[in-house]
Design a binder for these strands. Structure first.
Lengths: 207, 207
DNA sequence: TGTATAACTAACCATTTGGTTAATCTATTC
DNA sequence: GAATAGATTAACCAAATGGTTAGTTATACA
């Protein structure tokens, strides 16, 4: 039999429902009632466990970062030669994004809404740690394995190309006339195409 | 003296205020009262001119696309050699984005909220017309000016790299420790860096 | 100049929504 | 098995919000 004091069932169910709904509809667009319904509990329970909508939202937001950032950090800091690391990063980063398809636009939207929240949430956290990767890129430049490039620009390029089609899925499907199936296939191809594109661009040209 | 029937002053002021607020806060996050205040008019005026919040929102959304799409189409279909066109596109597309910094995340957010809206809004409009650019890329491949590449992937890559830092501005500033000034400089550099990166990647390698 | 019509305002309304309260249920503990 | 504390519910509340209405002002036009 479950012991009450250890049972985190309700709290977890609330967080899960809140995540689903907040990610999809944002803070302003989400209703406490909907979250409660989705969790199969009374609306008062939400306040019992999380005091207020804002507090619940913060918990969800923090959870999202706590899940997401370590995974990305792991990819950024994997011990692999540069080219393989790029391949590895793109492949897995896109997979993570596909598992959390609403996460990126959720984060953008809420950060734009409330930029100071970012500061308070990222301040004391292990945020994205790009130093190792930056150094690795600089080393490769020094060793003349790749053409000179600003590591930050390269990292941004890589992340941009991964994240864009996930966020803009419905629009891309519409503009390029893709079905759901075609889109999945497109993304799958991209996992190979992006690293190819990047490596093609940076690898030392034979002049 | 202004003639009443020709005077579009109020309507335009409403649209402008609504644009500012809807873009920043989305449909759900915006308040009719705030829009009215911002336009310096009575709340009832909003309904007098636009019946309902949804109708007003649709007008704003449509306006945004009507402004934005032609500009992008013009860039996509400029009569320039491929490499110059890429340079031209990136330079100007980023400028347009910077002038409408809330537009992209506004569009993503609302489309995710309401995917069917996209269909109805893009259906009868001159949507993004990528055929010419796609053909131009395929031609360049045939003429062995560039390595083989799927035009759609290339276009997505290009747009992704342009749009990403604009949308993620606050997060990039935070993660890479940039000031406002440093960010502006970063973007300015990117206008040169992105075309270089792309062209480097696709131009026929000397093997 | 008087009248019809468009532009505008203040007050009001109904509904939604986040949040509270008081009472009830459940289970652990002594 | 009564006492205690945590978990849960139904009913309720006040504020916010989209929307309406009835009336007023300004303007064009005959």
């Amino acid at each position: 039999m479950l012991q009450k004091k250890i049972d985190k069932g309700t709290e977890q169910r609330i967080l899960q429902s809140a995540k689903k709904i907040f990610h999809k509809k944002g803070l302003g667009g989400s209703r406490m009632q909907e979250i409660a319904d989705n969790a199969g509990i009374n609306k008062a329970m939400l306040h019992y466990y999380f005091r207020s909508k804002d507090k619940l939202f913060d918990a969800v937001f923090e959870d999202a970062l706590k899940d997401f950032l370590p995974k990305v950090n792991e990819l950024l800091n994997a011990e692999l030669p540069l080219f393989e690391k790029i391949e590895h990063f793109v492949e897995n980063y896109i997979s993570i994004l596909l598992e959390n398809i609403y996460l990126p636009s959720f984060i953008i939207y809420e950060i734009n809404q409330n930029p100071e929240k970012l500061t308070s949430l990222l301040k004391n956290k292990k945020d994205l740690h790009t130093e190792i990767f930056k150094r690795q890129i600089n080393d490769a430049v020094k060793k003349k394995l790749i053409d000179p490039i600003d590591p930050v620009q390269l990292i941004i390029n890589m992340i941009a190309m991964c994240i864009f089609p996930v966020i803009w899925k419905p629009i891309i499907m519409k503009i390029f006339g893709m079905s759901e199936k075609a889109f999945i296939e497109f993304i799958k191809l991209r996992k190979k195409e992006i690293p190819r594109f990047i490596i093609n661009s940076i690898k030392k040209s034979v002049k």
